[in-house]
Design a protein around this nucleic acid. Structure first.
Lengths: 334, 334
DNA sequence: TTGTACGCGTTATCAA
DNA sequence: TTGATAACGCGTACAA
């Protein structure tokens, strides 16, 4: 590997000048610039990332921590982040948090020790206060994905969950349903609460009274969805539709419905949330709410780059989900 | 951020001694060691990764490039790699190749420029020769995932595709099937060829003649599977079972079968390959061949660490797939 | 067992 | 517009 000194010798200039040509920090005469670039080319010179980091105190790396790399949900998000980070000539360091506060803390610390210039955090174990601390005290800019925290709202990339809940519910109402159940996620999660609010808001807007027998709290897991539906249909057999706060629970719930002899969508219509991979493969295919994850990843990256002094374009921080129409909802006979 | 010099001052020793304590390179008296560690703790000293890299010429980073981060298939593999890399105190840099030779080349170069200590490569665009070159000439150790290349076999982590193909076929034979079709992947891919060999071998072993009307080449995509099945049942309506070289094609093929009025599994049994996420969500759930992706990721990482002088445990480089029994295969009436 | 002093390759400051 | 030169923070011969 050639060094800057060898390049400078070949070009007949000082190392400083080579650095100036490469970084564009100071004007350099056109003729010398040419000579330098030629020398760079013939020696296939690549700046040493360590030396550069030592001198500038910047690594050219962005860190990202998510629950689990192998989840298609987070995978799509990471993909968006990578696109932008890569296009900016930076690189991405990943680290998993596994929805556990300690692991998440370790993960973030790990990335920060590696002197990432900025970090994208998706965390479920850490508290809001932890994240506020991190954003406000941390040694590098931080962007938070999937949590809306008032104190650091300008660093949060989120979707409008309430709108998502309302979209799902309104779609069912539009198909004539009036007895609509809702299986929520853990209500300790803001996402779950907001989707519930959206559900209620849509019902009210349509003049349908909210009945709390129609709502069951669950856990965002397939098995939880299955159990929740069992309770729901025992308690309120008149339901003709169920809105699930994520697709996994919808998958479990659909299984229970089928086992109970209810046809989907003709006896009971179903709407999910997230549009993860499996939604297209359920039978019937699942009508669900899609979050623009790749776009959100791109936005998170842009938000970070903005803080790092890259040219800032306007960044959207709150994304509107949209409904993906498939075959799990039927129009009800009046 | 504290430096090694500040630590040394607080502990009343030289910077060199601090370095020795932290790296364990040279014996240090117990009492001084204690003083140093105490100073490290109170100052919350973290070594500067750049300075360390500059001095040692190692980054403490492992690079990985895969087709697409958001695919659950590669996600699982990445997860395995991350587990091991992280446990070794190193970090992971990811970069996507998108099955395109140029993008893959860029990706790898990018990682190497960032001075990764080693790189895990999953590539579909690059030729065998490209990879051999990279492994033999590259500036850092390289491990290849999912391709078996004779010249660099000790750097390849693969599954036994032929065994997988045989497992699938034998399972169908055991269920009484004698007219078994096979939808292959692109036969330019070794994976696809090997699975086909496994299929033929199992047929021969059972004394069933191979009939080339029963084999259709396709493209590993859902749509391709759908079209392949259309051709297959037109040409050989007597088929009672089909083995697909991946799950995506099986999903497409099942759709075609259903549209043609064939019940699965009672009219036609189906076996897939990969056990990706969707296999559990098809109707009926898909019997398929599972590759131990997380384990393979771990193995790839271990193989790399071995080259980097970490304690080498015995590493398995060739993994046996296993059959996952679900509901897409029925016993045939004799 | 410990300390001194140099080198790693770059960028930034200052002077010319 | 350019060149010397001093950081940046660590590891490691070499000497003690």
């Amino acid at each position: 590997m050639a060094t800057i000194r060898e390049v400078s010798r070949l070009a007949g200039v000082s190392p400083a000048t080579v650095s100036r040509v490469l970084n564009g920090t100071t004007p350099v005469a056109d003729t010398t610039k040419e000579r330098v670039l030629e020398a760079v080319a013939t020696l296939e010179y690549k700046p040493n990332a360590f030396a550069r980091g030592l001198a500038t105190n910047r690594s050219g790396g962005i860190g990202i921590t998510v629950n689990q790399v192998s989840s298609p949900y987070f995978g799509a998000f990471i993909e968006g982040v990578e696109q932008v980070v890569r296009a900016a000539g930076l690189h991405l360091m990943v680290s998993s948090g596994f929805a556990d506060a300690k692991a998440e803390r370790d993960s973030i610390e790990f990335l920060l020790e590696r002197r990432c210039d900025g970090v994208v955090v998706q965390a479920e174990g850490l508290s809001d206060d932890d994240l506020i601390d991190l954003v406000q005290q941390g040694p590098a800019p931080v962007v938070v994905f999937g949590r809306r925290i008032a104190e650091i709202e300008d660093r949060c990339v989120v979707t409008n969950n309430e709108l998502g809940g309302a979209l799902a519910t309104r779609y069912l109402l539009d198909h004539g349903h009036r007895h609509i159940g809702h299986v929520t996620g853990p209500l300790s999660y803001p996402d779950a609460r907001e989707r519930l609010h959206g559900y209620r808001r849509a019902l009210e807007a349509a003049g349908v009274a909210y009945d709390d027998r129609y709502t069951v709290e669950s856990n965002f897991l397939e098995e939880g969805g299955a159990q929740a539906v069992a309770r729901l249909i025992a308690r309120a057999p008149e339901l003709t539709a169920i809105f699930f706060a994520n697709d996994q629970m919808a998958a479990g719930g659909m299984r229970t419905l089928r086992e109970a002899g209810r046809d989907i969508p003709n006896d009971v219509s179903v709407v999910g949330y997230d549009d993860v991979f499996l939604a297209r493969y359920l039978t019937p295919t699942l009508t669900t709410i899609r979050q623009p994850l790749v776009d959100m990843g791109r936005a998170a990256a842009h938000l970070l780059l903005e803080r790092l002094g890259h040219v800032g374009r306007e960044v959207v921080r709150r994304f509107d989900p949209e409904l993906v129409e498939r075959q799990s909802v039927a129009r009800i006979a009046r």
